[in-house]
């Protein structure tokens, strides 16, 4: 017993190798001193190799969760920047197109048609009165049912269209005829852009009817019930002015006009 306590005390009190205490400082041969230097080189080498080895193992570690989350954040920022770049290009192209076509009456007609379609499919930025519907997860550990799923968002969006919405965006992502909304874990992918709870659904429409119709809709009732049952968040706020950004829209690949 005593021996163990001594070992522990020794460990904590005397960190120096016994060798240093027991020997009087001696003058050693040059060979031994060179050996000592070589040892120092080896120690440095070891440290550097370990460092490099750890760096080389990075792709392996990138599979760990934290690294994945970091990459998701980076990629989202990166794609958001790209989207901004596309917005700027689209703006300047629209401007140039405007100038090129404004000169002739056929050009003006084509332009008017195009702008209307752009607003219709969600390429153009629009502004108007409307509502902001916020829906969020309940306490996660509570129940899987308290998580907002893609279907919940789709149901709310469907009810908003029913209530007369003219344009809708989810967390800044404008809905188009080819928009996708899907669940991935606790996040939802809106047109491939991951967004997390709470989800902010903005809808532009007649201020006299849109908020009233949606509030009375069975879906709104159901979600208000979920707030009590599962602790979900759900709120409807009327707004005098909302701005919805436009989005990218490439030409159809399979469909041709008839």
């Amino acid at each position: 017993m005593n021996g163990y306590r001594d070992a522990l005390a020794e460990l904590l009190d005397r960190q120096l190798d016994h060798g240093y205490r027991q020997t009087e400082p001696r003058k050693h041969s040059w060979a031994l001193r060179a050996f000592s230097a070589v040892t120092a080189v080896v120690i440095g080498l070891l440290i550097a190799v370990a460092y490099q080895n750890t760096q080389a193992a990075e792709p392996h570690q990138a599979r760990t969760k934290d690294a994945l989350i970091d990459r998701v954040h980076q990629q989202r920022i990166h794609t958001d920047e790209l989207a901004e770049q596309a917005d700027t290009l689209r703006d300047s192209y629209t401007q140039a197109q405007q100038e090129a076509l404004a000169g002739s009456s056929s050009g003006q007609r084509a332009l008017a048609d195009l702008r209307e379609l752009e607003a219709l499919v969600g390429v153009a930025k629009v502004r108007g009165p409307g509502v902001v519907v916020t829906v969020g997860d309940g306490p996660v550990h509570n129940d899987a049912a308290s998580l907002v799923q893609d279907r919940d968002v789709q149901t709310i969006v469907n009810a908003l269209w029913f209530s007369g919405a003219e344009a809708i965006s989810i967390d800044g992502q404008r809905l188009t005829p080819v928009s996708t909304i899907r669940t991935a874990g606790d996040a939802i992918l809106v047109d491939f852009r991951p967004v997390t709870s709470p989800y902010e659904i903005k809808a532009i429409g007649d201020p006299a009817t849109l908020p009233r119709t949606f509030r009375k809709h069975e879906v709104a009732d159901r979600f208000f019930e979920y707030t009590h049952k599962y602790g979900m968040k759900f709120s409807i706020n009327q707004k005098e002015r909302l701005t919805l950004m436009g989005t990218t829209m490439s030409a159809p690949r399979y469909a041709t006009g008839t």
């Binding site: 702008r115 209307e116 379609l117 752009e118 607003a119 219709l120 153009a124 930025k125 629009v126 502004r127 108007g128 009165p129 409307g130 003219e166 344009a167 532009i204 429409g205 007649d206 201020p207 701005t243 919805l244």
Partner: peptide, 10 residues
Amino acid sequence: PTHPSHAQPT
């Protein structure tokens, strides 16, 4: 082609 009456292009 419906004319949106509230969502105005901006």
